[in-house]
Design a protein around this nucleic acid. Sequence first.
DNA 1: ACTTGATTGCGATCACTGTTCGCAGTTAAA
DNA 2: TTTAACTGCGAACAGTGATCGCAATCAAGT
Lengths: 255, 255
Amino acid sequence: MPPHDPINVWRRPERSAVGPKPEHSRARIVAAAIGIADQEGMAAVSIRRVAASIGSGAASLYRYVRSHDELVELMIDTVSGEFDLTPSAEPARSQLLDLARQGRIIMHRHPWLAPLLLARPSMGPNSLEYLERALSALETATMSGPSKVQTVAMMTAIASAFVQNELASAAGSGSGGITLDAKDRAQYMSEVVQSTKYPLLAEALSEQHEPAGPDAMFTHVMTTYLVGAGVPAGAGLIQGHNDRRPGPSKTTNSN
Amino acid sequence: MPPHDPINVWRRPERSAVGPKPEHSRARIVAAAIGIADQEGMAAVSIRRVAASIGSGAASLYRYVRSHDELVELMIDTVSGEFDLTPSAEPARSQLLDLARQGRIIMHRHPWLAPLLLARPSMGPNSLEYLERALSALETATMSGPSKVQTVAMMTAIASAFVQNELASAAGSGSGGITLDAKDRAQYMSEVVQSTKYPLLAEALSEQHEPAGPDAMFTHVMTTYLVGAGVPAGAGLIQGHNDRRPGPSKTTNSN
DNA sequence: ACTTGATTGCGATCACTGTTCGCAGTTAAA
DNA sequence: TTTAACTGCGAACAGTGATCGCAATCAAGT
């Protein structure tokens, strides 16, 4: 609202004292934007569309938000508030795993989230609270501070990448709605495999997918990373032995 | 460019036999687009801008490319051709590490790449060739085929996330050009740390960054993942012991 | 040699997009 | 009551991706 301040969204107050009462609020606008994005995809979230959905003129939105980008940032942080961050006494690894699993669920609930989460830093209060919670899980771990932060960042990156793969695959299994190009993509991939140009890829894809569901696969991938990163599984154990105890994997090891 | 075929870019021929000779080519157009993106960022890559840069009308581009999205896909795949994929007899882990390092360099050369690489699947010929090469490195590894593919995907995800962090940080160190909001971001982060709301984050960031350069950090993060994923470091060794041999890390372990 | 038909380049145009401006109306403090 | 800040918003601007239709071009078929 103050015309030209290179000031962050997060430290700018929503409204000041004087003047007429605003008819809307950041929260309402952001909620509307999230609703649209959930149903029609990120591309449908235009200023005019959001404005119409809350019953206001397009230009009015700029009284609450300085730019479309800022709106997106707010969307991300709002959705980041869906984490359950209540503390826990469990070992670091399972605490982080729990956070990652929650993240996966949230990204499924808001399919537009996954791509965005990797494309921008996102440093809103809810994201920071999440970071803080993750760091608290890592308090017993023997890593440097910056390494902890990076580990958390990598966790989000991995989760996001995983979910994006999931969503891309899931788009093809839809009954037959909007997904016209998904069929073509499948067709194309089948041709790729049929061609003799990529024998190893063909072989790899022909093998049976482990019967484990996507949830188990996610757990496995994430655990894999956490183990490698040296996040302790229990007590004060430093990493090293990596006796893989966790339940989900049936076959001894893979991926 | 047959008007309406939900046919993939990759299997559609660039031009057919009859008719006047095209004055341009996909390669030329894509190269121009890449040039613009390298210098002015992805946002500057509009159809009109690219058309102008090769000296043609805007509508003409649609004779070579069906949509802006398709152009982007072509850009990604073209740049993916910058990998050196010559085979090697080294252990799987160091082969993959080499590929990841190359990827990092390429993403630095084309700063627009990193975000895109995570936002879309990308299955062009060069990307497939890259995948094939990575799979060849994993031939000795004891994983299921799909797990191998996923490991490679995760590698790219991690690399991309890492480079995005790098680029975001680097934007702040510029002398004082276009980066006006980077200063604000730094200011904001410093305030965040000063506030007592996120004590663990404050503490973590106050610790000294390990003196290792970003290159070594990248190697370390990536190795960390590969070790966890069970990519063998040498001979027929299955994972398990994880004696960390690789050179780059000075301190025993972290991340 | 000439017709045929596919294909190219492209100006004009459409439906949108994010964003800014200026103005009328509203409100709290001085 | 004046003042000054603020709100809502119609109109407009500069761009965007994309489509249409037309003249020009060229290869193949006759």
